[in-house]
Design a binder for these strands. Structure first.
Length: 423
RNA sequence: GCGAUUGUGGUGAAGUGGUUAACACAUCUGAUUGUGGUUCAGACAUUCGAGGGUUCGAUUCCCUUCAGUCGCCCCA
């Protein structure tokens, strides 16, 4: 045997036994979008790297050190998408979707790529589902987006779900806050960890959710973005919270919640699994408002808000909470031809059944009837149809109900009708 | 990029410096030549991730490498 080749690090094969769960989750996501009237958009899995540099931010870790990029044969600098928002906005601008209606409510689903060290809940190729609302600067649209995310976890049956919200304010508020942060941390920067020292220059906001220095006294007294919101930002945030209250969606405001992508402003939120035994990756969903992004990518001034959730993490959470999904794994009929002469008739009947919406499995290993019954059990077949040479001569077959353990003899010509009404 | 830990058949897993590598599940075959989910019998790793070293001898000791897992970082 030749040496085997393994899948690249951080990738996963989705095996048949897991497919049903994936399909179920994906169906729930689509149905939730239908209820909220979001339309699907599909964009390429790779883009010009410039899109992410400009959209997500050149200084973010995602772009600066986690991007899968390469030059194609035409010497174009390409990157596998690390997230979905930049591509969605690019498509919105490129296809001039701002001209179609005032507001676009979109969702996407598919693989994203980040060159990170894999661990539980974190892969190099992973699947995200995300939502983007473009063209609305209405606190109720923020609330709707959050409500949609919360609704998804509810319909899946997950518990211990925690919604955390914050406001990053508009650019004026953010600048004021950033300055205050730098002033606050600079005198004590030597006492903080190495990471925080680089954060001070790169993104002082991130110091706030540092785990290493979390208990340091400067954290408690650090200037909070909430206190630096200007009137407009403050009002907007209050309105979002009021809308959440109106829908009775529980949340906690966390002044230290920040997002890792540059484009966010105003509303930021995260949905986490409140379970310390779950693993390190507890964030199931992250999102927020990005009012300058469309313009930054060459479109007209257009506000936007959205979120993304990791489907693998949802599946892990479902597993963690031992939630059994309503997935069925049965086949209607197991066809059992006995002897070579009966095969053509069995094959013909099987095909007719399938054409009439009856699912049928059979044996292709030439095994005995006993083995076929075992296979039928394994396939969760509801019925077995046995065609032996005797039956064939009479144009008949045995139809056995495997659940009830009852059996009757039918004319082969009646089987399709019988199965349609009895399956 | 850094750290910890693991690597035995389809799966879960014992085990030892030395001539047959437990056990369980799964799978296959058989127990009246055409009837299942129970039971019983039998079969199933020239081999212990790969490469090198120590040794008379290594799956067991050492080194390297690859891979998995978990964590840091970051994020979904």
């Amino acid at each position: 045997m030749a040496t085997t080749i393994q899948k690249p690090r951080g990738t996963q094969d989705m095996l048949p036994k897991e497919a049903a769960a994936w399909q179920y989750v994906e169906m729930c996501l689509r149905q939730a979008c239908t209820r909220f009237n979001y339309k699907e958009i599909r964009t390429p899995m790779f883009e010009h790297i410039e899109l992410f540099k400009r959209g997500v931010g050149d200084t973010t870790d995602i772009v600066s050190k986690e991007m899968y990029d390469f030059f194609d044969k035409g010497n174009r600098h390409i990157a596998l998408r690390p997230e979905g928002t930049a591509s969605t906005v690019r498509a919105y601008v490129e296809n001039k979707m701002y001209g179609e209606t005032d507001i676009q409510k979109l969702y996407y689903m598919g693989p994203m790529f980040r060159y990170e060290r894999a661990q539980k809940g974190r892969l190099r190729q992973f699947n995200q589902f995300g939502v983007e609302v473009l063209g609305s600067f209405d606190p109720y649209s923020d609330a709707e987006v959050i409500a949609l995310a919360m609704e998804i976890y509810k319909t899946l049956g997950l518990s211990q779900i925690k919604l955390v919200v914050n406001s990053l304010g508009d650019s004026e508020s953010r600048c004021a806050h950033r300055e205050a942060l730098i002033n606050h941390f600079t005198p004590v920067i030597d006492e903080l960890c190495q990471d925080c020292q680089t954060r001070l220059e790169k993104n002082p906001l991130r110091i706030l959710d540092c785990k290493v220095d979390a208990k340091h006294s400067v954290m408690a007294t650090a200037p909070k973005i909430i206190d630096y919101l200007n009137d407009e930002s403050r009002e907007y945030f209050d309105a979002v919270l009021a809308a959440l209250d109106a829908m009775e969606i529980p949340y906690t405001v966390d002044a230290n919640l920040v997002r890792g992508l540059d484009y966010y402003n105003h509303t930021a939120f995260e949905i986490m699994l409140d379970d310390p035994t779950f693993g390190a990756q507890t964030t199931l969903c992250g999102g927020g408002r990005y009012n300058g992004l469309v313009e930054q990518l060459g479109g007209p001034m257009t506000p936007g808000i959205g979120f993304a959730l990791g489907i693998e993490r949802v599946l892990l959470a479902l597993e963690q909470q031992a939630i059994t999904l309503p997935v069925t794994n049965t086949v209607d009929v197991y066809m059992m031809p006995l002897g070579a002469q009966t095969k053509p008739t069995a094959m013909k009947l099987m095909h007719e059944l399938r054409q009439n919406g009856v699912s049928v499995e059979t044996d292709y290993q030439g095994r005995g009837m006993k083995a076929m019954f075992k296979a039928a059990n394994r396939a969760n077949a509801q019925f077995a149809i046995i065609i032996g040479e005797e039956e064939l001569a009479n144009g008949q077959c045995q139809v056995k109900n495997l659940v009830e353990s009852t059996q009757e003899t039918l004319n082969i010509s009646q089987v399709v009708t019988y199965m349609i009404s009895n399956k």
